[in-house]
Nucleic acid binder design. Structure first.
Length: 108
DNA sequence: TTCATGACTAATT
DNA sequence: AAATTAGCCATGA
């Protein structure tokens, strides 16, 4: 299975109204150093309708740049899910999704 | 095979 | 606190 497909599979598990970090996904892939490839996978993602890549943010809760979705689009999508987005930033302590058992616990 | 690149992260200025 | 540097590694040329 491709790295990309694994990334998509993980991202699809993120529930409505929650977000995850690239590092978390990388950790689920087995190597926390893969965070860049995670972002790259999402960049190459053509099925953004199926894969909720707007729920993926960086370690600080900052949204992706405008180049990825279009200016303000990701913020709007997250807002529609009930997530408070301020200045392209979300509060991870509230909205970060906690992966279950089979995945390692992410740093807080 | 070697080189450059990137939706990242951590450490240093 | 903000900017820069360095490490990371799967792709594509």
């Amino acid at each position: 299975m491709n790295l990309f497909d694994r990334v998509y599979a993980i991202v699809r598990t993120v529930p409505y109204g929650k977000v995850v970090t690239y590092g978390q996904i990388a950790l689920c892939l087995g190597n926390p150093k893969l965070s860049r490839q995670v972002g790259w996978a999402l960049h190459a993602n053509k099925t953004m309708i199926v894969v909720p890549c707007h729920r993926v943010v960086d370690r600080n809760g900052h949204l992706a740049g405008a180049f990825a979705f279009g200016d303000g689009v990701q913020a709007q999508l997250l807002t529609n899910e009930g997530i408070r987005v301020v200045n392209n930033h979300v509060d991870l302590s509230i909205y970060q999704h906690h992966f279950t058992s089979d995945t390692r616990i992410q740093r807080i």
